[in-house]
Every structure is written in structure tokens, then in C-alpha cells.
Design a protein around this nucleic acid. Structure first.
Lengths: 335, 335
DNA sequence: TTGTAGGCGTTATCAT
DNA sequence: ATGATAACGCCTACAA
């Protein structure tokens, strides 16, 4: 089947005895078309339900008005919130959104090839690019912004939060509220910010004179938090800083099932403040940042790159954080 | 700028002194190319990082290997869960995913035009199409599946859950546990399944000899549940069936803030069982269905349509539901 | 086995 | 103001 019932410019032109060229210009408000012709074209296009073929347009112009978002799993309130904000913002700019899951927590070559093949105009990724991808991104100058995972070794723009400060504050809060044996559960160690959050926590413990036990600082090897959590329970920690709020919720449920009380037996703190956008019956103690502003900045940065492809100067923007005290940590003890 | 640094078939062909045709066939494993040539082409393509231009491919073939998902807001665990499952499934089939937000809770003409323009191969929508869109979908035979919102007046395939039965069961549970004054909060009334869920609840009350008060059956006019909820609180209901789990969580928080105890003062039940995929500290009483199977069926149905465009026979599939009893309803009273 | 020609739908350029 | 032509990159059909 040749023309699957889609109306083309040539169909309009044919019925009006003009050329596609004229029809094209008429519809796009370009000069050089008489008012009369323009009206006739627009009217007929409307009647026939003409919709321009964006593939042809994209092939011709090299622009697809498409941005790709890369994450690992969408079933993570944080990604979902951010994806929604990005999608909304892009829509106002006339861009559509594709979603892709990376592999092994990275934006790797397979995914990138799809993006290249589809000629997306830009990439917003929540996953660090693998090394080979990083160099391709750099060489091809395809506009890319990495959100949430600062890594100054990468040749791309990044928007991150002040992991170090946030983690430091969490440590301080734990200690102020009586914690003596603090644990940490992060995502795999090769993710820069997972390490950074630990280092903030450790410095906080050092500065506040609380001894730390390396065995209580753990990086997940699987997507499940249970193993690492059980290890910490065995070690009788009284507070755990968890990489993000979703993992915290998983931990909370496991603790609840074991009859361990939060925050009385164990205090918990997370990262992301997902409860800001998502109803959550448990008020989490967490590190927050201005997600809307982050997305705003990320998209602006992306479009800077898109509109100035010759000057590929990547930037690293870091956002301030704020500690939100919820029900998963004790209130100040005045004993 | 003409060729933005992207390698094309002609680049490969040129360096090898063959034609694009041969290069094309070589890369796609088509017969009629000598082993020697094929190897050389593949090697060079690999070295040069050749990636086919999917726009050109799509323009030529009329296939884009793209499916669009339509929802209203992504910040809804249910959509997120479903979107993730769809995306995963599509990926295994070699298709990529675009996401679109409808307007006013419908898949309306603006969004549809974008989909037509992009020549997506199929549409999976969580929103009912508006009337004009429905007829276009029917006329153009663009493969579409509507999930979660059965409406037999639509000319498209739908996958839904047994709203009536689920709601009936909820009513029964409420009543068994002592509810005398039951309320309902649904999304706007023009959404079929919002009405259907109410009717199941009402029938249940009738069958079990519990009087109902129309003033306690409410449909939201804004995205916020607070107004309707406060009305029910005023009316001193002792149980509320809420359209879905996310709204239930919002309601729970509002009740908690007002010092109203769940389930002691008011029982709550929702729909979707989002806690199956998402960690949730509060175990919700909710109506569940097999989401993975639903998505599996939806995607299969979609590809039936895609692969048999001549026979456009839409189907309505309804999935069974199961009542999950959580902490938001009382346990059986034996008084 | 390899090459040539035409077309997918649109836009830009250069005529007329 | 309008038309003709070429190009975007690829694939199919047919020819050599």
C-alpha cells in the first residue's frame, strides 16, 4: 500500500491546481502566496484533515522536535515526577518526549544508537553515560543533560544537588537525636553520587565525634535492599541514611514486618522528598531540592545546547538542598 | 549544514566503491551480496559508527516502530506502573515509546494530530478518545487500545477490569464490617467507569439492606479530592470508596491531619493495588487485577491490529478483579 | 553479484 | 505569485 489514506500536500495541490510548493508555503504562512490561494489551501487542508508528515519534515530539516528521557526504571516516584515535569515543559516548547530505559544503570551504546537513529534533538538522562557513549556524545555534540548524577569527568552538562551538604545534614540530625551507630545504604559504588552521599555522612560523623564502622556502609549489589538492610539490623544500627526515598519506603516496610519501630528503634532518612508531589502516608525525613527549578534549568540548558551547537561548552550546575524533618527520625531529645 | 556528521550508506558505499544499494543489502542480511563485500561493508559500518536514519526508513516504509502512550498525568503511580510495563514489553518487540498527556482527561484532536503527524504505529491510551477522535481512529484504522476505561460506545479495543464486581465487593466488605453510612468519591461523571464503580457499590448496598444517601456519592470537579472529602466528613460517613489508590492516599493524609482515624473513624477502599509494585507504608484495602497480564493482553491486541490492518475488529476484554483487604478497613466484627 | 532509477513527503532554491 | 527541481537517506524493483 502506497499512500495509507494520509492526505499529502500533493493531494491538496492537485485539487487546487497548484503545486505542492505553493500549498506548503500557504500552510506555513510563508510569503509569496496570494491571500486567495492561501485561504483556499487552508480551507481544503482543514476539510481533508491534512497533517504534515513529520518524518519527511525531519528528514528534510534534520530536526525532529523530539527529546529522549533516559532512566533505569520508571517505577520510581522520583523518575516519574521528573519525567512528568520534563514532559510538560517540553510540550510547551513544541517538543515531544520519548522514554528509554538504559541498561545496567547506564546510558549505554545500544540505547544511544537508537537515539542517533531516531535523530532526537536532545537527551535528558538520569543515568550516567558509559565511557564509549560519553565520547560519542562529545564527538557528535548531541545536546545532552545529565540530571542528578554529577560527574565532572563527563563531557556533558550536569544538573545535580548538593549531595555532600545534604548527607552532612542528615548525619548531624541523626547524631543530634542520639544516634551512636549509623549506617548507610547506597546504590552501586561506581555511581559517583552514591559515594558522595556516603562521604558527606562520614565527614559529619567525624566532625561530631561519632565513631563509624565501615561494615555499616553498604552499597547495593542487587535492586533489592533487603540483604543490605538485614546486615545493618544484625549490626544493631540505630539510624540509616538511605540513598533515596523509594528505597527508604522499601526498608520501612521490611522493618515494620519485623516489628522494628521507626524511628524509635531505627531512624531513617532518605533523599528526593518525593512526598512533595506524591501522596505518602508516612512523612519521611529526607533531603529536598527544588525539582521544578531543576527541570526548568535542565531544559533551558538543553536548549542552549540545541540552539548553539557550535559552542559545546558543558556546564555543571549544582542545586542547594534542604533537610526536611519528618516522622522517620526522632524529635530533638532534651535529656 | 547538510550532513551533520552522521554517517550514511552513501559514505560507506563511496569508500568501498560500491553503490548504496549493495551496502544496504549487505547490512540488512539480504541475499545477492558476496560474502567478501558483505564483510567489508559490515566492518566499515562498525568502524564508522554507522546508524541507519530511522526517519528515512520510516518515510520509505511507512513504519516507525513507535507506539504512543496517552495518559493525563504521569504523576500517578498507576500510570507509571502501567507505562513501565508497556515500555518494557514494547522494547522486547523492537518498538520505542513516546508519551503524551491528553487534555481534559481525554485523548483529543490536538494530541491525535501529533500522533498522526509522527506516524506512530499504534496507540495505547488510558484516556477515552473524544468523539471526533474516535471517528478518526475508526476511519484511519490506526491501531488503538484503550486500557482501564471500558466504553462500549467506542469503536476501539478496550481492556478493562470488572469495575462493577470490584465495587460490589468493596460495598459488601464495608457493610460486613459495620458501615452504615457509605460514601463514594469518583473522577468526573462523564468517564464511564467512574459511574460504573458507583453503580456496583450502590447495588451492593441495596442487596445488603443498607440505605444510601445520594449526597454521599460525589464526582470530583477538580483534580483535588479535598472538597468532596470534606463534604463527606461533614455528612459523617463511616466508609468511603475512592476511585483509585492515589486519591485514597491523598484522602488518608487529609484525614490524618484532621485527626480522623482510619479505619476506626472512617474506612477507606481504593482501586488499582498500586502497592503491589510500589512500596507503600500503608497497606490499602483495594481492588486488584493482574496488571502484567493486562499489559500483555493490551500489547498483543495492539499488535494484532497492527499486523492485520485490513480487518479492524475491535474487541472488549474484561479482566477479573480481586479484593485485597488491607489496613484501611476494619477486621471482621464479631459482636 | 552489482548497479540504476524511482519514490516516500516535505522544504529550499532558483526559475518563470 | 507560482512553478520546477533537487535534496534529505533509505529501500524496492528492475536492469546489467
Amino acid at each position: 500500500m502506497v499512500n495509507k489514506g494520509n492526505i499529502r500536500l500533493i493531494d491538496i495541490a492537485g485539487k487546487l491546481n497548484i503545486t505542492v510548493n505553493t500549498a506548503s508555503k500557504a500552510l506555513r504562512g510563508k510569503p509569496g502566496v496570494s491571500d486567495e490561494t492561501r485561504k483556499a489551501v487552508k480551507k481544503l487542508a482543514e476539510e481533508l484533515g491534512y497533517v504534515p508528515n513529520s518524518l519527511a519534515k525531519g528528514l528534510q530539516s534534520g530536526q525532529t522536535f523530539t527529546v529522549a528521557i533516559i532512566f533505569d526504571v520508571l517505577i520510581n516516584p522520583y523518575f516519574m515526577i521528573m519525567a512528568d515535569k520534563i514532559h510538560q515543559k517540553l510540550k510547551t516548547l513544541g517538543y515531544d518526549t520519548m522514554i528509554f530505559a538504559g541498561e545496567d544503570g547506564k546510558l549505554e551504546i545500544n540505547t544511544l544508537k537508537t537515539l542517533l537513529s531516531r535523530r532526537v534533538d536532545g537527551i535528558i538522562t538520569f543515568l550516567e553515560p558509559s565511557d564509549d557513549v560519553n565520547s560519542i556524545l562529545y564527538n557528535t555534540r548531541i545536546p545532552t543533560v545529565l540530571i542528578g548524577r554529577k560527574n565532572i569527568n563527563l563531557n556533558i552538562s550536569t544538573i545535580s544537588t548538593d549531595d555532600y551538604k545534604g548527607s552532612y545534614e542528615v548525619g548531624k540530625l541523626f547524631i543530634t537525636n542520639g544516634a551512636k551507630n549509623i549506617g548507610y545504604i547506597g546504590i552501586p559504588e561506581d555511581i559517583e553520587c552514591s559515594k558522595r552521599r556516603l562521604s558527606g555522612l562520614m565527614q559529619s560523623m567525624i566532625d561530631h565525634g561519632v565513631a563509624y564502622n565501615d561494615a555499616n556502609f553498604r552499597f547495593m549489589k542487587t535492586p533489592q535492599i533487603a540483604d543490605e538492610l538485614n546486615e545493618l539490623i544484625k549490626n544493631k544500627v540505630d539510624a540509616i541514611f538511605i540513598f533515596n526515598d523509594m528505597l527508604l519506603l522499601e526498608a520501612y516496610i521490611i522493618l515494620k514486618d519485623q516489628g522494628i519501630k521507626v524511628p524509635d528503634d531505627i531512624m531513617l532518612a532518605g533523599f528526593d522528598n518525593i512526598q512533595e508531589e506524591l501522596p505518602n502516608p508516612l512523612k519521611i525525613t529526607t533531603v529536598a531540592s527544588d525539582k521544578t527549578k531543576i527541570i526548568e534549568t535542565a531544559v533551558n540548558l538543553l536548549f542552549n545546547h540545541i540552539n548553539n551547537k557550535e559552542v559545546y561548552e558543558y556546564q555543571h550546575v549544582e542545586f542547594d538542598v534542604e533537610l526536611i524533618v519528618g516522622e522517620t527520625t526522632k524529635s530533638l531529645i532534651s535529656s
